[in-house]
Each structure stands twice: as C-alpha cells, then as structure tokens.
Amino acid sequence: MTRNSLDVATRVSPQLSDLLNSRINNPENEQPVTLMAVRRFLSDLLPSDFNEAERMHHFDISESLTDELDALIEEFGATALAIDFAQVNASEPLSRAIERVVNDENRENPPTLAVVRDALLAGLGARLVGDGVLEDDEDDTLLAEIEALIDRFGPDTLAEDLLRYE
C-alpha cells in the first residue's frame, strides 16, 4: 500500500482530523485504522433513522464529516490508512524549538526534522530552558516527539510544515 504524503492531510477539515486522531490513538486498536473503519465508527454513532436532512453539518461548511469521509474513501480507497489524513502539528514546546532553528541566521536552508533533532541532541532544549523560552520540564519530551515525527514523515521533512500556530 502506498503511503500518502503530508500534503493530503492539509485537505482534511480540523473536525475530521480530530476524529481521525481519536480513532488512531484508541488503545484498543489491534490493527492500523483505515478510512472505512472510521466511517463505520461514525455510522455507528448515528441513529438508525438518521436521514440526509439531519446530517451533522459543520458551521459554515457545506459538507458533513460523513460526506467528507465518503469523498476521501472515493478518492483514496476504503483501505487507505487514516493516519495519512490526520493533521499533525508539533507540540507548543517543540514548535518553539523548531522556530529557534528556523530563525537561526547562520542557516542557509530551511531545517528538516533531522536538523531539529540534531539541534536538540546538541543541547537546544537546555538552551531554551536557560533563555526562559521553555519551562524546566518542557524539554524532557522534545527528543521523543521529534523522533516520532521522523518515524512518521521521514528525516527530510521540513520542520516548518509541522509548526503549531495558536
């Protein structure tokens, strides 16, 4: 099965992404979650007499979660992995670390996840704590988080693409 790129997740609404992430992160899952598994889950939540006029429509969005899922299934197939469609952002502490690397005026190229990992290994987290950018305990999980992102997207993914803006 071909994995879909990071770009496909940008086409998914935040509401559907939240639903996908909730199903992906369910500890009872024994197998990778597919789009069809999420669709079945959503269908099971709806009453049996649910009709088209009563669909759960988003505010200011014309498609419901069900419609959006159906469109993804039609385009990518029922067995496409849900994880490929869920939006992923770095945590706030990791976003601060990424921003520090991005804003390094000595850097010529946009940093990748591997570059950020290398900066963390070289003490970036401790420097951010020392500068007051991070709390003492916020740097404890940065390395594990960047490793998980590298495992999911690859070391050459631009770190900037995963920044959390809030």
Rank of each mutant, 00 (worst) to 15 (best):
D140I: 14
M36K: 10
D140A: 13
T112H: 12
E30Y: 07
L143M: 15
P32E: 11
A90G: 02
L81H: 04
M36G: 02
E30T: 12
A86E: 07
L113Q: 11
A126Y: 02
L121E: 14
T10P: 00
V8G: 10
L46R: 14
V12H: 04
L128H: 03
E75N: 09
R23Q: 15
T10N: 03
L16Y: 04
R127S: 12
R96V: 00
N103K: 15
E92N: 04
A114P: 02
L20G: 01
S43C: 07
R107N: 05
A80G: 00
D140T: 12
G77Y: 00
V129F: 07
A119E: 05
P111Y: 08
P93C: 10
L65T: 10
L94F: 07
I83R: 08
L124Q: 06
L124N: 09
V116H: 03
D118K: 14
D49F: 06
R11L: 14
E52A: 13
E138M: 02
D140F: 13
R55I: 00
T34A: 11
S91F: 06
Q15K: 13
D84E: 09
A114D: 13
D140V: 15
S48Y: 01
R40T: 13
D67V: 14
L42I: 06
P27N: 06
G77H: 00
A119C: 02
R55C: 03
I24S: 05
L46S: 09
H57I: 03
S13R: 01
E138C: 04
E28W: 00
A114C: 03
L128W: 04
R100L: 03
T66Y: 02
D139A: 15
E99V: 07
L94P: 06
L19C: 03
R96D: 11
A82F: 00
P110Q: 06
G77D: 00
E54G: 12
